[in-house]
Write a protein that binds this DNA or RNA. Sequence first.
DNA 1: CCTAAATGTCATCTG
DNA 2: CCCAGATGACATTTA
Length: 584
Amino acid sequence: MGWESHITAASADIDLIDILWRQDIDLGAGREVFDYSHRQKEQDVEKELRDGGEQDTWAGEGAEALARNLLVDGETGESFPAQFPADISSITEAVPSESEPPALQNNLLSPLLTGTESPFDLEQQWQDLMSIMEMQAMEVNTSASEILYNAPPGDPLSTNYSLAPNTPINQNVSLHQASLGGCSQDFLLFSPEVESLPVASSSTLLPLAPSNSTSLNSTFGSTNLTGLFFPPQLNGTANDTAGPELPDPLGGLLDEAMLDEISLMDLAIEEGFNPVQASQLEEEFDSDSGLSLDSSHSPSSLSSSEGSSSSSSSSSSSSSSASSSASSSFSEEGAVGYSSDSETLDLEEAEGAVGYQPEYSKFCRMSYQDPAQLSCLPYLEHVGHNHTYNMAPSALDSADLPPPSALKKGSKEKQADFLDKQMSRDEHRARAMKIPFTNDKIINLPVEEFNELLSKYQLSEAQLSLIRDIRRRGKNKMAAQNCRKRKLDTILNLERDVEDLQRDKARLLREKVEFLRSLRQMKQKVQSLYQEVFGRLRDENGRPYSPSQYALQYAGDGSVLLIPRTMADQQARRQERKPKDRRK
DNA sequence: CCTAAATGTCATCTG
DNA sequence: CCCAGATGACATTTA
């Protein structure tokens, strides 16, 4: 279902890409630039695609798109170097002179935007691709597909070229941007190749439009990725095939989107993520430690994390609420935390775990403290047994244990066994050593009271030693529990953050897709305008100029010149190279 | 009986 | 310096 549409869209993209490519070429963008690297990347992509199932398909699409995109980008980037301080206004003016409607003017301006594309160079694209794949792998849930393709509610892609309301950039905006971009101008608007093509040259804007899925499929499928890399040839074929058909906006967009997303992904992951995110994460960890402090309020961990992740906070707030549910469960455990899991259940444990609540322990067991013996109280007996501590070493244990069971028989015996089993090793040891108070007390009593308690009894060195060990171990046990809870909490928080980040990433990718889409639209418009203008030009004899021999070029002063192709090509090359150098 | 997860224990560090 | 708590590493128990 979705896949098909996606795929088709992707294929459609190809045509678009081809067109753009040509444009780029016309502009003077060099394919050489990307060729080599592209191929390699593509191959890699293919491999990856093969490796994974659906994801692969995605990746594949993305790769293809990427490849195409790269071409485009590469071209655009190179073709539209900042070199040319061209005025947008100039361009617009020039166009109008031709008798174009205002709308057209705007359109013309839009092309300038292409300059924006430049930023996306091959490397980035590649990274994007990688990132996308990664993303796909990662987010099975919020599958990138959903995001990318289904993404926005009123997703433009699905609808049409018409920009979605949400679309960040609409044409108007784009124009604005274009002006800002101030791309250079002396570039040739479009060049040769487009015209050279029969279909295109003759007339039509159509060629500019993205090709249909069908055309895409045919061309693309057959050609395969490698084909993409050899634009010149492909262009011809692709154009022919694709030519007349209506463009599939979605397809092209999607592909680009894919590519772009990839790039975004990369950026997010590699660049943005590492530094920023990493720092955040680090903070979180720190906070965690802090959390430990807060142990009492496990949630604090959340808060802390939030604080750290505040960057994502915007989303986090929402997420936090959402995640909070998840975390909440967690928090309960943890926060409460440390209150030990109800499961455990030895009172001791509970108390202990709860730790931090010595009183509780007192509650439960104070009574039997009698030095006399724990056995006094029935209830205590059982429980008390547990608490009653036992001997340390296994020898004692063994000795102790047997007796009880042996002595008591029947239900009682069973109970005893049960209780024994319930007793911790330290309890057994305490009992074996005849320690007069419960482990609970030993462990949970505040230092003062603990010392007081010890002072009340005449204890042997061995007993004192055991008591100290019991206390130490008991404390540590609780500490370990808290520590683990905290750790778990931290992990949950991190997971939540990851989700938030993924959401952000997806959102950014969507936005990128939309931008690219609008950019592409503008390019198409520019191209169509170019063709229209060029088509209306007549020489002294009233005959149209041959697109193969002439090209329109924007002059620095805003005028549009008709110049011989050769010159145009030369200039295009120059422009092409400068940008490269700059980038490096 | 084996494995993995849960717990407990110990050694260290830290505040 | 002592203590309690935190935590990594290892041991033991539990499921």
